[in-house]
Simulated scan of single mutants.
Amino acid sequence: MSAEASIPVVINGAAGKMGREVVKAVAAAEGMHLVGAVDRSPELIGQDVGVVAGCGELEIPILSDLQSVLVLATQEPVQGVMVDFTHPKGVYENVRSAIAYGVRPVVGTTGLTPEQISDLAAFAEKASTGAIIAPNFSIGVILLQQAAMQAAKYFDHVEIIELHHNQKADAPSGTAIKTAEMLAEIKNQYNPAQVKETEQLPGARGSCTAENIRMHSVRLPGLLAHQEVLFGSPGQIYTLRHDTSDRASFMPGVVLAIRKVTELKTLVYGLENIL
């Protein structure tokens, strides 16, 4: 791909654990180049984002103001992409700002409500700007979810357990919520009651969707990102599990999303919808 056709990329949350991996992935990928890096860590403002990420100097300083960096992206000959791995509290406004500037968002930050996603989809469609929101960029997780949808045709009882590091701010994880939504496409009700349950401690049975799918969240240092989907029927348990041991496993999905979002004019929710 010629330099003129190379996709300009802005990374929001560039100094975070996921952001640093995205910096390295974009720097190494063909057909795209980094034009801006945003982070709110005061001690890193002004530093070269490549040095911070550990991939060498890229001559891109970390800045604190997202809108000024979005302006840089609009000055490129090709429509830019913003990759966002920040915090649930700010992601909605980040995505709206990107769309308003004509920069296509690729969002890995979880915690958006269904109403916020719907509003962003309407905003993106009105602006004819592509956007991708993916609760998980791991190909392995997508395969787990597809297998879970197949299993749901044959099992009436299912629960989801998700395990993450203790710096994750939202619970349940976006991946667990997305998995439950996919299971709801197969059946509108799970886990028919066998007894009247009583929680001795509130929350002991986890959260529960309208389809009666239970979700349990574990937060511990030493974990990264893990999910189990357990199906049960008399005499058997069918367990699907995915374990992440390195954030680099998410990067092929992120790079794919950066390429694919340039072809879209609306918002797509879920990596499985661009594979």
Rank of each mutant, 00 (worst) to 15 (best):
K260L: 09
V26D: 05
T109R: 03
Q47R: 05
E115D: 07
E125Q: 07
T110D: 13
A29P: 07
M32Q: 12
M251N: 05
A5Q: 11
Q47S: 03
F85P: 06
V26N: 02
A184H: 08
H157A: 03
E272T: 10
K89D: 09
Y269I: 05
L220M: 15
I213Q: 12
Q79H: 09
V52H: 04
I132T: 09
A122W: 08
P192I: 05
L72F: 03
S173E: 01
S207Q: 08
M251I: 06
G222Q: 09
Y101G: 00
T179S: 15
L34W: 08
A176G: 12
L143D: 14
V35F: 10
I274Q: 14
A14F: 11
G130C: 04
M251S: 04
V255D: 02
A3Y: 11
E43Q: 12
I213D: 03
P192V: 12
A204R: 13
F155H: 08
E159F: 15
Y269E: 15
E263V: 04
F155E: 02
V195E: 06
K178G: 02
Q47I: 06
A124I: 08
M251C: 06
E159C: 12
E59F: 11
T239M: 09
S6G: 04
K260N: 11
A121L: 08
N94D: 11
F231V: 09
M82E: 05
P61D: 02
P42E: 01
L143C: 11
A25K: 07
A127H: 10
I160F: 01
L230P: 08
V51K: 03
K196G: 15
P135E: 07
F155Y: 14
L183K: 01
P221L: 14
Q150F: 14
Q146G: 05
A147W: 03
F123S: 04
K168P: 03
V107I: 13
E115M: 05
A147T: 01
S207N: 06
P88Q: 10
A98H: 03
A131T: 00
V195N: 02
V81L: 03
G130R: 00
V141H: 07
H216I: 09
Q236T: 15
S68P: 04
T179D: 08
V10A: 01
E43T: 10
L144Q: 10
Y238I: 00
L264T: 13
N94K: 07
A210E: 05
E197R: 01
V83S: 02
E197P: 11
V69P: 00
I237A: 05
I177A: 04
S173M: 04
L58M: 08
G232F: 13
P202A: 15
D156I: 01
G19W: 04
G174K: 06
V91R: 03
D243L: 12
Q67R: 12
A73F: 00
N94W: 01
R205E: 15
T109E: 06
V141M: 13
M82I: 01
H165E: 11
A257G: 12
L70F: 00
N188K: 14
K265E: 15
I186E: 04
G36H: 10
